[in-house]
Each structure stands twice: as structure tokens, then as C-alpha cells.
Amino acid sequence: MTAPVMEAVELTQTYEVARGFLSAPASVKAVSGISFRLAPRATLAVVGESGSGKSTLARMLTMIEPPGSGALFINGADVAEADAATRRRYRGEVQMVFQNPYGSLNPRQTIGAAIEEPLLVNTSLSSAERRRQALEMMTRVGLRAEHHARYPHMFSGGQRQRIAIARALVLRPKILVLDEPVSALDVSVRAQVLNLLVELQESLDVAYVFVSHDLGVVRHMADDVMVMYLGRAVERGPRDAIFDAPKHPYTRALMSATPIADPGARRERIVLEGELPSPFNPPSGCPFNPRCPLVMERCRAEMPPLERKGGRLVACWAAQDTPGPTPMQRQPAFA
């Protein structure tokens, strides 16, 4: 395996939340003990529902906020040990595309200015050179030169996401963190943007951390998949291992709950009861135990470690070290 462009070791983030004037502040563990290695030009998909800590993880990876504990390595160097100037350089290596293209662009800034701004801040290029690079990147993402002087409101959602991608790539980063990049887009436009991302990854040699809740999109884009639940990774491994034979009961429930666009597919559906527990007082033991169909006595007492089982890492006492799925209670699908 080639040297990873990004490596996370036990990243953890805890937030203090004030609970009124007299009560002691509560702490929320938004992300806890996340580790992974990202190879150049590879795509790691981070999957999870709202409240699973995906976005907090994305903020730590892009150095928007430092991790509470744990370490982040970029090109093999520890970010925490770097001096201010070096850290500035690292920021150029990791860029981000946000979920909502209607909120992430300044309505009073032209597209050209938005795309040139990273160059203005991070480089000492002349304005002519900045403009040249911005125009080149706009062409790459499928925007035309005359769009340079226009404002965001003149663009559709898909085009805005292209602008956001151009802005993120104009510094030629090695890593792009995409936080739900296509979830706000219509199906036909979504396919256009996904195709663009695939093309750019090949032509610009960039690795993706692809945060999404849409398993169809993840299966299409990812090399590796990490499934998160309440701030923890419950399963992580190669895409095919996870999609063909998910081992963690949460991953299986997530997959069975995702509707498939094929009415002929006879599927079994696992309907989870309840909702994500409050992160203020997570359940003891495994965080998934109150909703888990395979729950045992041990799950309520002890946190399962992330262990290698059947070609991927999985944090579950009930998962077995066999390649096939384990038997469990299932309900028939609709109709």
C-alpha cells in the first residue's frame, strides 16, 4: 500500500454545552476514537444518520477545529506539531465542499471572486494569474468563461455545486472533504455532479472523504466505507466487503432500510425501533444496544472494540468472524 495522504488516529471531539445558569455544563462526545488511512486518489465514504458525528469529523479533518484528542497526519506529518506557517500549507492540501450550495456561496460575491479567493489568501500570485487559474478550473468543472462575472443567484443548484467544487480545487489540494455534496440536488443533476467528481479525481489526483447518508451514492463512489453511529465507527472496510456482507447489525439495518429502485427485488427489511439516543447520556456498553435486534447481556455492559472480522473492522460482540451474514430476526418487506 502506498503511503497515505491522510491518516487519522483515535480522533475524538468533546463539546461542552451550557445547561442554564445554575447547572453544571454537560459534555457531549460528538466523535470518539475515529481512525483511518486514506490512500492517494482513493475515496473513503463516511456513512451515518444525523447526529452520528459525520460533520464534526469533517470539521476536524479540514482543520476547521483541532481535535480534542488523537492525531491527524497529512502526508505523514503530524498536524499538531507543525508551526503556523506549515499548518497554513496543510490547509491548502485539504479543502471542503459543503452540503448546501445555496448557503455556501456569498450572494454578493461574483463567481470569479469566490473561486479566486483561496488563491488570494494562500498564494502571492498576480491578479492576472489568479484569473487565469480560476478560468481554467471553471472550464474543468463545466462552467463557461462568461460565468466569471455572474452572481450565485443566477445559477441552478447543480451549477452552484460545480462552483463550490471549483473553489475547493483551485488550490490543487490532495484531499477533498465532501459533506453531503449531492443530497440537495435532483436525480438528473446529481448524476452530472457525481460524474464530474469521478473525472476530477482521475485528472487531478485527489483523494476524497465523502460524507453521505445515501448508500446508493456511497456504493457508486467509495473504495472504503466507514459507518458511524453516535460518534463511533461501528464498521469500516472495503466497499464490497461491507455492501456484500455487512456484519454490524446497524449497517445491516441501514442497508435494509434504504429503498432500492427495483420493485422486483425481494428483500427482507429490518425496521429498527426507536431513534438515535441522546448524546448527552449515551447508553452504557455498545451505543447501539437499545435498538439492536441481536442485543446480549454483554452489549449492555461492555463497549465492543473495533476488531478485524471477515475482511473488515467491526465493533460488535455478536458479529462472527465468518464471511457470510449471521442469522437474525427479520421482517418481510412491504407488500
Partner: peptide, 23 residues
């Protein structure tokens, strides 16, 4: 037909058959 073909879960290759343009 184009809408169904553009779904990632129904696609076979890396590049999805997308619908050009917008509504």
C-alpha cells in the same frame, strides 16, 4: 428511462448516464 438510468444503484460503470442540462 433517463431518470432511472441516472440512479447510481442501477448503473454498471463508473460514469453514470446523466441527463444533460436542467429543467
Amino acid at each position: 428511462a433517463a431518470l432511472l438510468a441516472a440512479l447510481p444503484e442501477r448503473a454498471s460503470g463508473r460514469i453514470l448516464p446523466s441527463i444533460p442540462g436542467v429543467v
